[in-house]
C-alpha cells in the first residue's frame, strides 16, 4: 500500500507568533519552527497502516527550505522517503492554492491513502484535506479518530459534536486525523541515523506543471489587508477565597447581568 502523509512545518505555538508587516504573511523566520503537532499523529497512523498492510510511507511537505528539519523528523519516526515542494514562488499562497500544489505533487506519486492532520496550529483553517479531495476528485474522510482498512475499503470514525459518524469509502482516499487517534512514537537513535540517508526529492512549482501565476501571494484568492496586535485583556479583579468565593462570583455575574 502506498501511503502519503502530509507534513507541515509551523511556528512553535509556545512562541509569540507574528505576521510580517512587509507583506502581511506569516513570519516564519523569527520563531522556532516545529512539525505541526497534529501531523505527528498522521505520521504515526501512516506507519501503523504500513505495519498492518505493508507498503511504503512517503512524506509530502510544501514549505520553505527550512522545512527539511521537519521532514527529517518525520523520516526518523520511520517514514521511507519524502517529497519536498519548495519554491520561493509559493510564498504567501492561501489554502486553495496550497491544496492545488499538494494535489499536483500527489499526481507525481502513487498513492492509496493520503493522511493529513486535521488542522495546522498556525493558520487553523482546517480545510486543506477537504480541498485536496475536491481537487483530486477522490473521497474525503476527514476528522478521523479511528481508521481501518479492509481490502480496498477505508472506514473511519469521524468526530461529531454528539459522538462520531462511521464513514466509508473505496481507496484511494484523503484522510485527516485528529489529535489522540494514537500515540505518536518518538524517533529512535537508529531511526534518526537512518533518516539521514533516506531519499528526499525536491520539486519546484515548474516541476509540478504549475504556472508562476497560479501560486503565491500576488495570485492568492484571499488577502490580508491589515493586521494589528490585539490589545491585551484588562486584568480584572482577583480575590482570595475567604469562604464566600462562590457568592462573590455570583455577585460579579449579577453585576454584569450574566445571570
Amino acid at each position: 500500500m502506498n501511503i502519503v502523509v502530509l507534513v507541515k512545518q509551523v511556528p512553535d505555538t509556545s512562541a509569540e507568533r507574528r505576521l510580517n508587516p512587509a507583506d502581511n504573511t506569516l513570519d516564519r523566520a523569527s520563531v522556532d519552527a516545529v512539525i505541526n503537532e497534529i501531523d505527528e499523529f498522521a505520521i504515526e497512523e501512516g506507519l501503523r497502516l504500513k505495519e498492518a498492510h505493508g507498503g511504503e510511507v512517503t512524506i509530502l511537505t510544501v514549505g520553505p527550505e527550512r522545512a527539511t528539519e521537519s521532514i527529517r523528523k518525520a523520516l526518523s519516526m520511520g517514514a521511507d522517503k519524502a517529497v519536498h515542494v519548495s519554491d520561493p514562488a509559493i510564498h504567501g499562497s492561501d489554502a486553495i492554492q496550497t491544496a492545488k500544489i499538494i494535489a499536483k505533487a500527489l499526481g507525481t506519486l502513487e498513492y492509496d491513502v493520503v493522511i493529513a492532520g486535521s488542522e495546522a496550529t498556525d493558520t487553523r483553517v482546517s480545510v486543506v484535506p477537504a480541498l485536496i479531495a475536491e481537487a483530486l476528485s477522490v473521497p474525503q474522510l476527514s476528522h478521523a479518530r479511528k481508521v481501518t482498512i479492509e481490502g480496498s475499503t477505508l472506514t473511519i470514525e469521524r468526530l461529531s459534536e454528539s459522538g462520531y459518524d462511521v464513514v466509508q469509502a473505496p481507496l484511494p482516499a484523503v484522510i485527516s486525523v485528529v489529535e489522540k487517534i494514537n500515540e505518536p512514537r518518538y524517533p529512535s537513535f537508529k531511526g534518526i541515523m537512518a533518516a539521514k540517508s533516506k531519499p528526499v526529492q525536491t520539486l519546484t512549482v515548474a516541476d509540478l506543471g504549475l504556472g508562476a501565476d497560479e501560486v503565491g501571494l500576488a495570485n492568492a484568492t484571499t488577502q490580508v489587508v491589515s493586521f494589528e496586535v490585539a490589545p491585551s485583556r484588562q486584568k480584572g479583579e482577583i480575590v482570595k477565597d475567604e469562604g464566600d468565593g462562590g457568592v462573590k462570583i455570583a455577585d460579579f455575574l449579577a453585576s454584569r447581568k450574566l445571570i
Binding site: R233, K235, I238, V239, G245, G246, V247, K248, A250, I259
Partner: peptide, 28 residues
C-alpha cells in the same frame, strides 16, 4: 488564567464551585 480573567477567585475549586452552583440555583 488570572491574567485573562475579568473576575477570579484564588481558592479551592472543590468548595468555591459547589458554592457558586448553590448560589446560582438559589438566585434563580
Amino acid at each position: 488564567i488570572f491574567e485573562l480573567a475579568d473576575f477570579g477567585v484564588v481558592g479551592d475549586l472543590f468548595t468555591v464551585a459547589p458554592q457558586l452552583t448553590e448560589e446560582l440555583t438559589k438566585r434563580k
